[in-house]
Design a protein around this nucleic acid. Structure first.
Length: 631
RNA sequence: GCCGGUGUGGCUCAGAGGUAGAGCAGCGCACUCGUAAUGCGCAGGUCAACAGUUCGAAUCUGUUCACCGGCUCCA
């Protein structure tokens, strides 16, 4: 007799051949949402026949695990449809991912975006017909024979480190797959194919490029609709579109990857930088500026020539090779070395808003997020080895203040360890990695480990901010460097009167000021908070006769370092307000006869609407209540 | 860099071998207006670049460039 349990329920079966679905029914767990099972903690098909006792759970379509299975099965359904429409196609891998699924296909012929509806229709046909899905387990040899005409599956099977594999069949289509899957395709209703792209087989750029088709599936039609709505919302927040609409920056064929910042974009960037400077001065940083172009020899010495050359732009001056700097560290080191340093000078925190150039492959450029020239809000801290934890902790506090308190971001932290292409000994790396780990653990910071993703000179802590579509962007980083100080003979005189080598900490908060601005544009959907807004106040005269008064007001604002504009067009009030709203300007001041006479302003706030008339002093008081980290 | 797609006035887009179109923005004129689009008029493009096919190319072909979606890489 077999015994099945679920929490306090129990079912005893006389049969030694019972499917999990039957058990789930017997336990009273079945309903329409059930699409898979869990047996002793292992996800399984409903059709799986069990011959031992155990713990049983039903997986429903609306659970995270169920949704993943649904999407995975939808990927298979898509593959079957593609096989029908493009016979002879081969399939690579087709997993469920964060918001859907994809399948990499070596298509017999070509598939374009226009073909997606056709494939979708075929999928609905197959699902409507209730195509059954069945699993068979076979040995690797049997599987190799089964897939002998499929180079991709053959490669996958060969690499699998298990004696047996499973194959899922639905109609004429069969796929190597761990499963589980829905028991028949009619369970799949709410799906959509989204886009098409190239993807290298097994993610290796030396391999053949397959056609990747992205899609998604949800438990209910409403969730699918909501997802599509969210994608549209994300499109509206796209910083490239808003950058154009709000006149912040532009990109030109004449300088791919080199953004042009317009006056309004610079107003935002300068405000960010002003804030950044203040916070750094408060925390004991001083600022330097080092040259854009430096001798090749410097980069050889720093190791960049060996480890970073393909990203560097080179130039020639008087028949000598120079490099346009891709990083600020060597310049900082030269500044440090201009004097003999004492342990009393440490930690020495040299900050630099350095503009660095890096050659990025043409296909990766993306608005402000991925460019070939950007401003790092860099700082290099020279420190006694015993002070690492303390200093790293202080930087993490600074990061938290910026990200959470000022900008309201969620972020995650990653510890990246030694990469293949790196300098230094294992001992140095272990020491450096342990120092970072201790800093993270002593501050109870949750983190994940990203093996092999450190810089070539040391391990690092990375801060990833999440944007409105759930993409994450690496912004801050804290990198320990036990290499460069040695390479450049960087020293300080210790308390003992002897020469010592300091540890170098590289760190950024914004990362790239340009990228950070891009993230902020999307984060705020272009509606910058008052303190950052490129135009804080729009003065709207009702008629031309109020222009003089408007100019008077603007002068008052200029004296207070407030950014204001006057709408001088001879348009109707409604039009001027509409345009100011669309520019997402925080405050609109309507001035007409009444205001001019009483020396007041009619205040309209972009989201609260009309706040009524008040004196200039009263308005200034309203402004003083706005969040402003610069005060 | 690779795969696929797209390049038409400042912006959004129509036109698919036979003398370049619309709306918005701009400019001019009228209106001088009270909280999300006043009306009329004018001007604006070697149709991404280069080569080819053709009597004739924005339209067909090729090459290049840029952009978009991904892959690889990354702040």
């Amino acid at each position: 007799m077999l015994q099945f349990k679920h929490e306090d329920r129990q079912y005893n079966s006389d049969s030694e051949n019972i499917t999990l679905h039957e058990v789930i029914k017997a336990l009273g767990l079945d309903n329409k949402k059930v699409i898979a099972a869990k047996f002793n903690g292992e996800l399984s098909d409903l059709s799986r026949i069990v011959s031992t006792s155990g713990e049983v759970d039903a997986i429903t379509i609306d659970s995270p695990e169920g949704l993943e299975i649904l999407r995975h099965s939808t990927a298979h359904l898509m593959a079957q449809a593609i096989l029908r429409l493009y016979p002879g196609s081969h399939f690579g891998v087709g997993p469920a991912i964060k918001d859907g699924f994809y399948y990499d296909v070596d298509v017999a012929g070509t598939i374009t975006e226009d073909d997606l509806p056709k494939i979708e229709a075929e999928m609905r046909k197959i699902a409507g017909a209730g195509e059954k899905v069945s699993r068979s387990d076979m040995t690797k040899d049997e599987a190799l024979k089964f897939f002998q005409n499929d180079p991709y599956k053959t490669e996958l099977i060969t690499d699998i480190d298990a004696p047996t594999v499973s194959v899922y069949k639905q109609g004429e289509y069969a796929d190597l797959c761990r499963g589980p899957h829905v028991s028949d395709a009619s369970k799949i209703h709410n799906f959509k194919l989204l886009s098409i792209a190239g993807a290298y087989w097994r993610g290796d750029e030396h391999n053949k490029m397959l056609t990747r088709i992205y899609g998604t599936a949800f438990a209910t039609p409403d969730e699918l609709k909501e997802y599509i709505r969210r994608m549209e919302e994300a499109k509206l927040r796209d910083h490239r579109k808003l950058g154009k609409d709000l006149d912040l920056f532009s990109l030109h064929e004449e300088g791919p990857g080199f953004p042009f910042f317009h006056p309004k974009g610079m107003a935002v960037m300068n405000t960010l930088i002003e804030f950044w400077r203040r916070e750094h001065i408060k925390r004991g940083y001083t600022e330097i500026k080092t040259p854009q172009i430096l001798d090749r020899e410097l980069w050889v010495r720093s190791g960049h020539w060996d480890h970073y050359r393909e990203n560097m732009y080179l130039t020639e001056i008087d028949e000598k090779t120079y490099a346009i700097k891709p990083m600020n560290c060597p310049g900082s080191i030269l500044v440090y070395k201009t004097q003999l340093r004492s342990y009393r000078d440490l930690p020495m925190r040299l900050a630099e808003l350095g503009c660095v150039h890096r050659h990025e492959k043409s296909g990766v450029l993306h608005g402000l997020m991925r460019v070939r020239c950007f401003t790092q809000d860099d700082a290099h801290t020279y420190i006694e080895p015993s002070k690492i934890r303390e200093e790293v902790t202080a930087i993490m506090e600074l990061d938290k203040y910026f990200y959470t308190n000022v900008f309201g971001f969620k972020y995650t932290v990653e510890l990246s360890t030694r990469p293949d292409d790196s300098m230094g000994t294992d001992e140095q790396w272990n020491e450096a990695e342990n120092a970072l780990r201790e800093a993270l653990e002593s501050t109870n910071t949750p983190y994940t480990i990203n093996p092999g993703d450190g810089a070539f000179y040391g391990p690092k802590i990375d801060f990833h901010l999440e944007d409105c579509i759930g993409r994450t962007w690496q912004c801050g980083t804290i990198q320990l460097d036990f290499q460069l100080p040695g390479r450049f003979d960087v020293t300080y005189i210790g308390e003992d009167g002897a020469e010592h080598t300091p540890v170098l900490i590289h760190r950024v908060v914004f990362g790239s000021v340009e990228r950070f601005m891009g993230i902020l544009i999307e984060h705020y959907a272009g509606a910058f908070p008052y303190w950052l807004a490129p135009v804080q106040i729009k003065i709207i005269p009702i008629a031309d006769s109020h222009l003089d008064y408007a100019r008077e007001l603007q002068n008052a604002f200029m004296n207070q370092n407030l950014r204001s504009e006057i709408d001088t067009r001879s348009e109707k009030l409604g039009r001027k307000i509409r345009d100011a709203q669309m520019q997402k300007i925080p405050y609109m001041l309507v001035v007409g006869d009444k205001e001019k006479e009483n020396h007041t302003v009619g205040v309209r706030e972009r989201s609260k609407g009309d706040l009524g008339s008040m004196s200039l002093d009263e308005f200034m008081n309203v402004l003083s209540k706005e969040f402003n980290p610069l005060r």
